[in-house]
Design a protein around this nucleic acid. Sequence first.
RNA 1: UGCGGGGUAGAGCAGUUCGGUAGCUCGUCAGGCUCAUAACCUGGAGGUCGUAGGUUCAAAUCCUACCCCCGCAUCCA
Length: 682
Amino acid sequence: MRRILVTSALPYANGHIHLGHLVEYIQTDIWVRFQRLQGNRAIYVCADDTHGTAIMIRAASEGRTEEDLIAEMSKSHQEDFSGFDIEFDHYGSTNSEANKETCNEIWKSLNEAGMVIEKEIEQLYDTEKGLFLADRMVRGTCPFCKALDQPGDNCSKCGETYSPKDLIDPISKLSETVPETRTAKHLFVHIEKLHEFLDEWTQSGTLPPESSNYLKNYFLNEKLKDWDISRPSPYFGFEIPDSPGNYWYVWFDAPIGYIASTKEWCNRENENIDDWWKNDQTEIHHFIGKDIQYFHTLFWPAMLKTSPYSLPTKIHIHGFLTVDGEKMAKSKGTFIRAATYLKHLNPSALRYYYASRLSSKVEDIDLNLEDFANKVNADLVGKVINLASRTAKFVSDSGLSEKYPDDGGLFESAAKEGNKIAADYEAGNYSHAMRRILEIADKANPFVEQNAPWELRKDPEKSKELQDVCTIALNIFRQLVIYLSPVLPSLSKKTEELFGEPIQSWDQSLSPLTGIKLNKFKHMMNRVDPKNIESMTEESKEEATKELASTHVEAKSSNWNDSGSPLEEEPLSEEISFDDFMKPDLRVARIVEAKEVPEARKLIQLTLSLGGDERRNVFAGIKSAYEPEELVGRLVVMVANLAPRKMKFGISEGMVIASGPGGKEVYLVSPDEGALPGQRIH
RNA sequence: UGCGGGGUAGAGCAGUUCGGUAGCUCGUCAGGCUCAUAACCUGGAGGUCGUAGGUUCAAAUCCUACCCCCGCAUCCA
């Protein structure tokens, strides 16, 4: 019997659980249930991730304490999880005594190993709010390209990265005041010291190969940067014991929450934490998304390495969720909260669909809503459950045959298949497992067809034969449910009720049930109705609009009913004076030539005429939306006094004006009929 | 340009480890059945397996080169 500790990443207390989160928790829950079915001892712990500036600011803006906020979110998260049959042995919080204690302990080990160093860094400080500003809390003018209103870490216009203190005219997003530069002492973990260990550990098979490669080529091929682990007061988190006024950065105490949550479980269950976190016979499995692999594959092992706790046995990394092939988008109603889903659809359907898409690879999975309904209905209702619903009532009086009849090897070959299915589950290749399981169902349905129990029923002399056929179909059904039970605990429960026999072990798939009475067959699962999918996305859209209305000053009602999402995605910039407006010199220009730039992915090279002999060479990032030929001759609006900019393919002497999010959606602005090249726009 | 993933029927995908009749689901066409939640069963049409070359008796699978798509990084807007 293996002893296995399993975790999922800790969801942040600043937001609700949505379908993207659920990929991970469903994936993990399936794995845990599978391990238990195999007879292994597996416990599943998780917790809310509660610290950081975002929580602090939100609590303040809602006029309540952080504790109040995180308590409410924890309750909401747990309700969502349980609604999807995701069962934790313990669900804790990073804001707990156990976590504080464990942080201290790990901190001590890091210090003793000489891993902690102190550096002075300059940071922007909001004098009105009295706090240091995180990069994203500042906006200002880009020091490189002079673009206005850029975030504190990198410029969305020129893409340069910089430190917020380099911004020209920085403004605090919190108070709208001008922050000042102050120096502060920060503590860093010098993980370069463990470079060699990390080189080895990341290649040791603990990670999926895609991730090992990524780390090797991207982080581990140069010196590892010191990790800034402290944040100055005020900060919602734990104060660092030997550095008053400084707090641990949320990413320090978050993974430690795995240990702390286990400790709490141990206290409750009278278990010994050392058996779980300090014993090399215990396997530790983390399930995470690819967005946080950096923390779990470099910092976390480094922290553990110097501590008395065990390193993880395996890190399972999944990709992101897309809906209908695109990123989840509030405006399209595909940003779906767990709670919203549950109002309209059956959690088992989503569990099965995710299972049928998940593999051990680090790849994004797509929730194609049409395919989702199709697959769940065809596979689960039409094939698997159908086996029982079309035969159970024929044996409601007689029960199952005393002796398992000759089925031509159906049951036995399906029992043999069990090993392969189990191997697929173990490796995280759920999609393979689902495929194999459905293949069995695909053999069983023709069997029923050929033996036509509805015909046998008509002839009293064939009652034994009828009972045999149904015994076979129902046993194969039960076998399928055993294989599916990690994915579909609720189907498993209903099957237990039908047979009056609990499903507790994988090996139950090896021997058929005989000679028992069945309970009355009840519907086991409803079909997914596309109407419910639609009402779910509709409601998600409405939620998003409401949210928008409450965060933006006023949502003007209009007859045109335009969506609010473009504004949401790119909020209005700060107010400017008339003089500011007069700075950009916008001119009508005619495109006199348009050329492909073969090596460029996004650019078209334009020659613009401002009338007379005035010509400008401009590179415009509109290749994905326009063909050069269709551009020649048309009028556009250009920024004529923009400083020339050297680009990879030449010098660009201005910009043409366009709207749209990019890609195929780029819309050049044209003047109305009659405008002349060279005219200024005022 | 770098790293990773991908290109197989109208759509979505499996098969590639270890070469041997190209398969599944949906859709579509024809038929069957009426036990089952408009379900299920049988059969058909639909594929130059991204391109070119190579190895081999035999290539979707192995080798070489190239093209295209997606993500991340970079460049750029």
